[in-house]
């Protein structure tokens, strides 16, 4: 069964424009100009129940806007979406009881008082029976190791503790769909590992669909068999993480070891020399010409060893994030 389906989802925003300087401020006091910006441009995706999907793109690519439309916070300018069988922006409570949105920089926990109070509030908001509440809370507290954090005011918790409490608050009602926006933002390496392990476990245990955005490569590589890449609001790639490389990288890497020194300049006509250590060289070669160039290399140079590799996935993902 499909968990998420969108068709040509599009969202425009109006942003105010101001000329620089004091005079600009005075002018905009009386006459403000607006500019239309297309944040999400005709995005169509389908996600099956129980999938764990990574949603990638540079800052401002439109990831968060898409997540907000899927959770019903924003009404799209045009296009359609069906999430868990509902149109999200109608905000039906039958829909809201079955999903959750966690934003790494935001918190729904009350700052001055213990997290347990916010959990109780969510219990009454989601209408959970005492028995369900106790059972779910117990499970989450175990999985997230929250035992010591429940009765301390939230402002006294560390960032990692707060993020885990945040997850618990969002998952008390056992949502079938979880939208995660930067869940590991600002956490240290150990804590990131814990949060990742938890996400994986939650997905497996509850057959929950999870769509997550992250700037943390390890999150993507470790968690997401499938990724969706978005750039300037447009869908760029949707498929297995493994194939992202062949789609995205227009070149491969040839590593060669020689039995005597070779000058970098002599190799330049075969590809871009990335590394050159006299007896070793690493070349970037356009995808279509790999075999021809490798043959030339073997014929023209004293090659002892030669390997052909794909560009590492880290590089690809990093390039997507930095938008090159």
């Amino acid at each position: 069964m499909l968990s998420i389906e969108t068709r040509a989802l599009t969202k425009n925003f109006s942003v105010p424009e101001k000329d620089p300087g004091l005079w600009g401020s005075v002018k905009s006091l009386f006459n403000r100009r607006w500019r239309q910006v297309r944040a999400v441009d005709s995005v169509s995706i389908k996600i099956e129940e129980g999938e764990l999907v990574g949603f990638l793109g540079a800052n401002g690519a439109g990831k968060t806007t898409t997540l907000k439309m899927l959770s019903g916070l924003l009404t799209p300018t045009s296009g359609e979406a069906v999430v868990l069988g509902h149109v999200p922006w109608k905000r039906k409570s039958a829909f809201q009881r079955r999903f959750s949105l966690v934003m790494g920089q935001r918190t729904q926990l009350w700052w001055e008082i213990p997290a347990l109070e916010t959990f109780r509030l969510n219990q009454v908001i989601y209408g959970l029976s005492d028995a369900d509440y106790k059972k779910n809370l117990g499970e989450l507290v175990d999985l997230l190791e929250l035992q010591d954090c429940l009765s301390v005011p939230v402002k006294k918790l560390s960032l990692g503790q707060r993020m885990r409490a945040e997850l618990a608050a969002a998952l008390l009602h056992k949502p079938a769909l979880l939208l995660l926006d930067e869940p590991t933002l600002g956490l240290d390496v150990v804590m990131q590992q814990k949060v990742r392990a938890f996400i994986k476990e939650y997905n497996k245990r509850n057959k929950a669909t999870i769509l997550l955005t992250s700037h943390n490569m390890d999150d993507v590589v470790e968690l997401c068999p499938r990724v969706i890449v978005i750039e300037l609001g447009r869908l760029l790639y949707d498929g297995p993480l493994a194939q992202l490389v062949s789609r995205y990288a227009d070149h491969k890497i040839i590593r060669a070891v020689f039995d005597r020194e070779v000058k970098a300049a002599d190799l330049a006509h075969l590809g871009t020399v990335v590394e050159d250590g006299g007896l070793k060289a690493v070349l970037q070669v356009p995808r279509g010409q790999v075999s021809a160039r490798a043959a030339k290399l073997l014929q023209g140079f004293p090659v002892v060893d030669l390997t052909i590799d794909e560009v590492p996935i880290d590089d690809i993902v990093r390039r997507i994030f930095t938008h090159k």
């Binding site: 004091l22 005075v26 905009s28 006091l29």
Partner: peptide
């Protein structure tokens, strides 16, 4: 600060 005050009209 003058600009800021005016900006938040």
């Amino acid at each position: 600060s003058l600009q800021e005050t005016l900006q938040r009209r």
